[in-house]
Design a protein around this nucleic acid. Structure first.
Lengths: 306, 306
DNA sequence: CTGAAAGCGCTTACAG
DNA sequence: CTGAAAGCGCTTACAG
């Protein structure tokens, strides 16, 4: 039996998979909508969390990036999930026009969604509260003329929840959310600058801008600097996501940490517990406000002027 | 035979794997040294290239992130590569103290390294020429007092090649590379700022700083701005990698594009061709200089003053 | 050229 | 409680 050690015997996993029906592989599914999946730092952080939990119990990760259109995920993916290769799937499922987890649950394959798609097992970031926290922070600093830089709601479910959170936060602060000017970008830094330009052209008296991600916030700060507006003294700018760059930016950006690795960890734990024939409850990961130097109290003189 | 269509038959891949000895899975190996693997944007870009080629031919990607110490990769990994689960591996292999590809080739499993580790099949970025291009660009703008911000050579093979390229470029420009002041960071933005502080404290008359990655270049620019040095007019700053943020930064950063997705594509093509019993030649991916606004001609008054 | 049988290397249910 | 046998669902080499 110690010959096992000496000869370096390693079980053949394909044989084991065939006989036991278990492959110890889970598919991690990042739908490819735009090329966003390969440029978004959060994707890698989520993967980090999944990997950490899987490594503990010896599960392997098969990465799948199906092309997602309104007709659903591509056939490659359809084949993968019925191939017997995988024991279960964890999928980012936040694109309103098509679900990637639905065909999996239909086939009764254990599945956990990270996102808002309505399914039995899911983990969600508390986008509503995160956005609420942002608005409370900004309004709490005395800002009233606040611009919103978002993204079209049909791109990502989380956007809808963040906007709802902003609305609730505005109401709490006695502001009419519908009166706050809004511009939509596409998550990119460049679009952040462009939105800032549009917003400030019409509303030069804004004292704060809330951006639904950090990269757009960086774009706003660059634009503001370009036209000589000091951040945060003349214009407060806050972001969302707490990507690594947010802390290193100048000024460091006030933002919402959604704990992406924890989203991944929770999803992996949930899937493993489904494998154990338990029925885990869905999980919501709380966010936290990270106050840095890009936001400050509303400049009194500016506030009065409007 | 059209019943196949109707019944939605999908072959069981585990059975196919067992009988044919082929799994159509390749392991993509990103050794976990620090948590760098999950925060480095290049990793995802390389993965993007691998995924694109694999998708074409129906191969799946199993992601492996072995912990790498001087004792070699962890046993999880050792098991994976002998498990019969994978047809081959593509690995980032650039950490001098241990190779991740060596145990694979020893077992005669098809393997392609992305990196400088000496092995039969590899794809490399032309770090030497990339760094040479940087130095030629900076020296060509008339700079002579150039600071170097690098990283310890024992962290990554590519650093050694980039430093050699800088040296060659300096010699071509008639500069003594050994006389150029150097500070070492750790790739992070913060370390870039710290290095800039150290360098400029001793050598306030530097007119240019060459950084071996973009994030450190961002740190330098922030530090320079903080002490009132205009970039690029008073200080030119160049980076390396061309991460997405480099173009969106202010000022947009002059840098070297190493075409990370192409590294991935080339590695995948190479592995697939090994599967076909061909013997592909190793590949070097050329880099290109991307000139943006963070570098400009040396300020004459400053140059004279030194 | 077609079709039935052996075999891939495990796991597991069953007989002893 | 132990050990021999069947079976997982394919592929492929072989007999017809």
């Amino acid at each position: 039996m110690q010959a096992v050690e000496e000869l370096g015997y390693v079980p053949n996993l394909a044989a084991r998979a065939l006989s036991s029906g278990k492959t110890c592989i889970i598919a991690v599914v990042f739908p490819y909508v735009y090329d966003a999946i390969f440029t978004d730092p959060l994707v890698l952080r989520i993967l980090e969390g999944i990997e950490a939990e899987c490594k503990k119990v010896g599960y392997n990760i098969l990465l799948s990036t199906p092309r997602l259109t309104s007709a659903g995920p591509d056939k490659h993916y359809q084949r993968l999930i019925t191939s017997g290769y995988i024991d279960g799937v964890i999928a980012l499922d936040n694109v309103p026009f098509a679900s990637v987890i639905e065909p999996v649950t239909k086939k009764s394959i254990p599945a956990v969604a990270i996102g808002y798609y309505d399914t039995e097992y899911c983990v969600r970031s508390d986008d509503y509260s995160g956005a609420l926290q942002m608005m409370e922070h900004v309004a709490g600093l005395g800002h009233k003329r606040i611009g919103i830089i978002a993204v079209p709601e049909n791109l990502h479910y989380s956007i809808q929840h963040r906007l709802a959170g902003l609305r609730a936060g505005a109401e709490l602060a006695g502001l009419d959310f519908n009166l706050l000017p809004r511009a939509d970008g596409d998550f990119s830094t460049l679009s952040g600058s462009a939105c800032a330009a549009r917003l400030l052209a019409v509303h030069p008296d804004l004292t704060a801008v809330i951006c639904l991600n950090d990269r757009m916030a960086m774009g706003v700060i660059q634009y503001a600097r370009g036209i000589g507006l000091d951040v945060p003294n003349r214009l407060s700018v806050v972001g969302y996501d707490d990507i690594p760059m947010a802390a290193a930016f100048s000024p460091p950006i006030t933002t919402i940490d959604q704990r992406a690795p924890e989203l991944g960890r929770a999803a992996a734990r949930m899937l493993l517990s489904i494998f154990d024939h338990r029925s885990p409850s869905s999980v919501q990961i709380p966010t936290s406000l990270v106050v840095r130097q890009s936001s400050s109290v509303a400049d009194q003189s500016n506030t009065e002027r409007g």
